[in-house]
Design a protein around this nucleic acid. Structure first.
Lengths: 159, 159
DNA sequence: CAGCACAGGTTGCAACTAGAAACTCATTGG
DNA sequence: CCAATGAGTTTCTAGTTGCAACCTGTGCTG
């Protein structure tokens, strides 16, 4: 048990925060998800200082969240696009946004995020058990890998 | 369409980041989820400077994420506990942690988060459609509330 | 009830980081 | 070739962070 507690601080949260924990990172990411690609677009959309924007974009590129490529037709322009790693932050970003809607602004956002197929709102992001029940803090437990239960009928998408 | 684009920047992400976007906030939250309650516990666990810890705890209390209460048995001690609003950040935090595991550290964490009932690992946090399909960036669309489709058989938990 | 220890801060100061505005530098269009 | 544009740097100021030392209220012990 002591060993477990000690290991909890080794989780990947600090690593994730090293990439995304800085002041503007999430807002730049949101802008990227919303289809922005160029320095000046981010700058005017976010109102961020240019030096900080340059720094953040550079860092997001370093971390493999964005790729930076000069555009072939106009080589003054540089395009920043999301990598798979960057796109994989979508659930995190939506979870944060939904939390803000529910608990901080207390207003349902005016543009609603919907499924493109049927134009229905997406579900709230939740922690789900292997069989799809919604779990809360009280339902969760940290265990060492040896104590994890497995089921060969349901190969979970753990990897 | 121009109107939509313009409204995208009004989403709740900035509000959420105002509460949780500062440097140590998520790590303090993780510690709170892991059962820490006292100033000295956070201080030694996180190695954070005392003044910054005091500042962050105060801010999290201001934002209603933690509550601060002196303990009845030993009134020197102050307990910080998660509110419902704070506990509601669980999906966000787990999403971020899972992203870190998958993309940043590339190692499955040693302590695994499992469902207390059956000791099976939880699912990966994902964006789900109303009927439970996993959605990616390409499946999503922002629309104005007027253009949202509804279904009276499935009352979605939107509020 | 004096004196010490301890939890939980505050204060003061050095180092670092963020922000606004001006400057550079390569393209590009005229 | 000249002015405009995209994408950054530089510079300088203001705010944050970190560290260490100090302060304060509470509890424990003799």
């Amino acid at each position: 048990m002591g060993k477990l507690r000690e290991k909890l601080s080794e989780c990947s949260l600090p690593a994730a925060l090293e990439a995304m924990g800085e002041r503007w990172s999430f807002l730049i990411l949101r802008a990227a998800f919303n289809g922005l690609h160029h320095f000046e677009e981010y700058q005017s959309e976010l109102g961020i200082a240019r030096n900080i924007l340059a720094n953040r974009l550079g860092r997001l590129v370093e971390h493999g969240i964005l790729v930076r490529e000069p555009m072939p037709d106009d080589r003054r322009k540089i395009q920043y696009t999301l990598t798979d790693k960057g796109a994989a932050l979508l659930p995190t970003m939506i979870a944060l946004r939904q939390w803000g809607e529910r608990w901080a602004t207390c207003v349902n956002a005016s543009p609603v995020l919907v499924d493109r197929r049927d134009h229905r709102p997406i579900r709230d992001i939740a922690v789900l058990s292997h069989d799809g029940r919604t779990l809360t803090k009280a339902d969760l437990l940290w265990v060492l890998p040896a104590d994890v239960a497995h089921d060969h009928d349901h190969a979970e998408a753990a990897e």
